[in-house]
């Protein structure tokens, strides 16, 4: 099957031949080194700092899980983690819902399909910084929607979510959805296109209406896609940083703080790199909670698939 570099054949071969046979490994060697340093080395490094007494500079004195305890004792961090849950849940569900609606609409054999798709997907190409800055201007009462409503003569109009402690997080959710729902749309649409047409025809012959066919037949058959999109979006949510920086800078107060912002502040603003490293490790843990079950599930699925095809 695969091209081989069996060692047995090379035993009589010349030294040059042997070296030639090692070319793949040698070319790959720098990457192996970098990947190992990056994935394993950097992780151990950061974990080690999180367990040390480091403050402004790394300090190798071991102090155990003290910084983790301090981190979880700080209000800022617990608020950030709560925000992550609220934001993550609404952002994922919202983007999936919007993406599904868009995908089903485009699936209706519309004209100019490529144009619609391009429009819905373009936010994904622009940065979180640009997205956040643009939406901040639109949400801010001085420059955005509220101002425009006042100008139109509706002086009592009020739309100041972005400066409201209780509502600012929803501004982040809406902006995040604007950025990501096109992504959900693209993947779900690809899924819809893979559904067997005969299945739909059979349902049509049974007299089912189109919305019903989508709800009961088409969408349920592509559920693995929904899981994949959910996993990717959850990853985005856990790593969310730039969007919040550009949109609200974590404020007002700590209302929209997320874990990644706390990491940055601890490491580079407050000179508490041990606690910052502990917060970074907690982000890694959150990612592992999402990715490890998904990886296991995918492996299990493909094994099942393999068994079915013999």
């Amino acid at each position: 099957m695969q091209a081989h570099t069996p060692n047995s054949q090379t035993s009589q071969a010349s030294l040059g031949q042997r070296l030639a046979n090692l070319t793949p490994q040698m070319v790959l060697a720098p990457t192996i080194f970098l990947a190992f340093a990056y994935v394993v080395g950097f992780s151990i490094w950061t974990i080690w700092i999180s367990l040390s007494t480091s403050t402004l500079l790394p300090d190798p004195t071991y102090q155990g899980f003290e910084e983790y305890a301090k981190l979880w004792g700080s209000k800022r961090w617990t608020v950030a983690y709560q925000n992550l849950f609220v934001f993550g849940a609404l952002y994922v569900v919202g983007s999936l819902a919007a993406g599904t609606v868009l995908a089903v609409l485009i699936d209706q054999r519309v004209k100019f399909e490529a144009v619609w798709r391009t429009i819905y997907l373009y936010p994904l190409a622009i940065s979180f910084i640009v997205t956040g800055t643009v939406w901040r201007w639109i949400f801010h009462p001085n420059t955005g929607v509220e101002r425009a409503l006042h100008d139109m003569g509706w002086l009592a109009a009020k739309f100041d979510w972005i400066t409201d402690r209780d509502l600012a997080l929803y501004v982040v959710v809406i902006t995040g959805m604007w950025h990501a729902s096109g992504f959900a749309m693209a993947l779900i649409l690809a899924g819809l296109r893979s559904v067997d047409g005969d299945l739909v025809k059979a349902a049509q012959i049974d007299g089912a209406s189109m919305p019903r066919i989508y709800r009961k037949v088409v969408l349920p058959t592509i559920w693995p896609i929904f899981i994949a999109v959910t996993v990717v979006l959850l990853q985005f949510a856990i790593k969310t940083y730039d969007l919040v920086v550009a949109l609200t800078q974590g404020g007002p107060g700590v209302a929209t703080t997320v874990p990644a912002i706390v990491v940055y502040d601890l490491m580079f603003q407050r000179g508490q790199i041990a606690q910052g490293a502990a917060a970074a490790v907690m982000i890694l843990v959150a990612l592992a909670f999402v990715l490890v079950p998904y990886a296991l599930w995918s492996a299990w699925q493909s094994r099942k698939e393999g068994a079915r095809h013999g």
Binding site: I32, F42, T46, Y264, A277, L291
Partner: peptide, 15 residues
Amino acid sequence: LITLGVFMPQQMTLL
């Protein structure tokens, strides 16, 4: 190992 690098959060690599 190389694939794992895709999932590494940037925060783990800053220091």
